[in-house]
Computed example of a mutant assay.
Amino acid sequence: MGGKEPLLLPLDADLTSYYASFSVHDKEFSFRFFNLPHPSEDGRSSLKDVKMTCDPENRQLLAGFDDILQHRLKECQDLPSFVLELQDILDDISFAHVKLSLPSPNFYRRVIQEIDSIGWNNLAHVGADLTQLKFRIFDHAGREHIIEVALAVNYPKVEPKATADMPCVVDFGWDEGATLKTLLHHYEEAILQYQDFWTIMEDLDKTFWIMEPENPCRSDTFRRIALGGHCSLSVTIDPLAPRSIPECRFFGSDATITPIRSKLTSNIYKWNKAKLLTENLIEILDIVFPLPEVNAQDDISVSCGICYTFRLPDNDPTNKSFGKEGSIPDRACDNGNCGRPFHTDCLVEWMRTISTTRQSFDVLFGECPYCSHPMAVKLRRA
């Protein structure tokens, strides 16, 4: 079998719906099963009425195998057994698909000639069949940019797919006569546009304590900056006009952030596009920003006051980030003498356990777990 043991998670309390996930040849597959029967008295049951759903790509891959899948559903007595068989079927399909999709000799000759033209020293990685390539480009500041290129077996009739860690999608346009060198030239021009943007973002990361993203990429256009006192500022920068006034959003208690927000409003006329973003923020907000070095010392001040962690894991199996670290504290007590931060989900769960909590529509009204100051939190939509 080409993958690890499947993951099965129930989607309802009656155990009649399940989410299944597994990998085959390093490719992830996920399915949902509905109308599962309850076990019979003799321990035997049929899955003949079970409904299975999946994304369009997997649906296309399984096209023509409907009769086989229905037959196996009738034969299998439990869902784990069927999922293992489904994994085996996809393993066979994937292997056959790879064998039938090998490129022609002309494909190899052309790709090698085009790499020769570009220069092999600019090639960072090449797949065994030459359909997966990674090229490196260095900008004026010495930053290395990796351009990942996927080629179809009938390249160049079918245009290549290219991706890079860029703040905007690069539309390279695939015209007749275009080559990989043409594609890379489009990326070189795009990289040139974002030099000032990356300079601005690197200066932000070096000067301030950045709470989010935890490991910034060159495609990230926002930063959440710690302000101290359990407060933070999220800025979203226009990559094509990085020295313009960014979109700003404050997090924290009203008592703490209202004066800072007022300074932003009253001093915004001082914004100078000739300066770096950090210089403008320091002058306009007129506060002392926590330095990156104090991160370890002040971790306790930004951790959730209920679960005592900074980042919550994403426990929703339907999300791509399932099992990875998710949200950080995004609510705070409005009492200026408290200001403790909380995850919205933690605050909702805590309030629901308190008998004095009231609910009006999708808003819970309760008290801060620390100082009993009134707090309201809006429920997330399912």
Rank of each mutant, 00 (worst) to 15 (best):
L364W: 04
V302M: 13
C346T: 03
I137Y: 06
F29M: 03
H38F: 07
H145C: 01
A13N: 13
V158M: 07
I191G: 05
L8P: 03
D298V: 08
D316C: 11
L347H: 04
H343S: 11
S355Q: 09
L11S: 13
F22G: 04
L61Q: 12
K378P: 01
G339P: 00
Q359R: 11
D171E: 15
K161E: 14
T163M: 05
L276T: 12
H125S: 07
Q70P: 00
I287Q: 02
A190D: 05
C168H: 00
E41S: 14
G43W: 01
K378W: 02
K4G: 14
F365M: 09
Y19H: 15
L73C: 09
C231V: 01
A164G: 11
Y269S: 15
L204G: 02
M211I: 13
D316Y: 03
K51F: 04
V294W: 07
N267Y: 05
L8A: 10
D42W: 01
E144D: 09
P239V: 03
S244Y: 09
N122R: 15
R136P: 00
D254S: 15
F34N: 07
T179V: 08
D238F: 05
T357W: 04
R44Q: 09
L73D: 02
D42S: 02
I115F: 08
F95A: 14
M52I: 13
D316R: 11
S253T: 09
F310C: 03
P10W: 05
Q113D: 12
H125V: 00
V149H: 02
N215W: 08
A128G: 00
D316Q: 10
V98K: 15
M351I: 10
V377T: 09
A20M: 05
K27V: 06
A382T: 11
R358C: 02
V288F: 02
N106Q: 12
S355W: 00
L102G: 03
D139Y: 06
G177I: 02
G173R: 12
L86T: 04
I210V: 14
C333Y: 02
I200A: 10
G305E: 11
F289N: 07
E188A: 11
K206P: 00
S46Y: 09
G173L: 07
D175T: 04
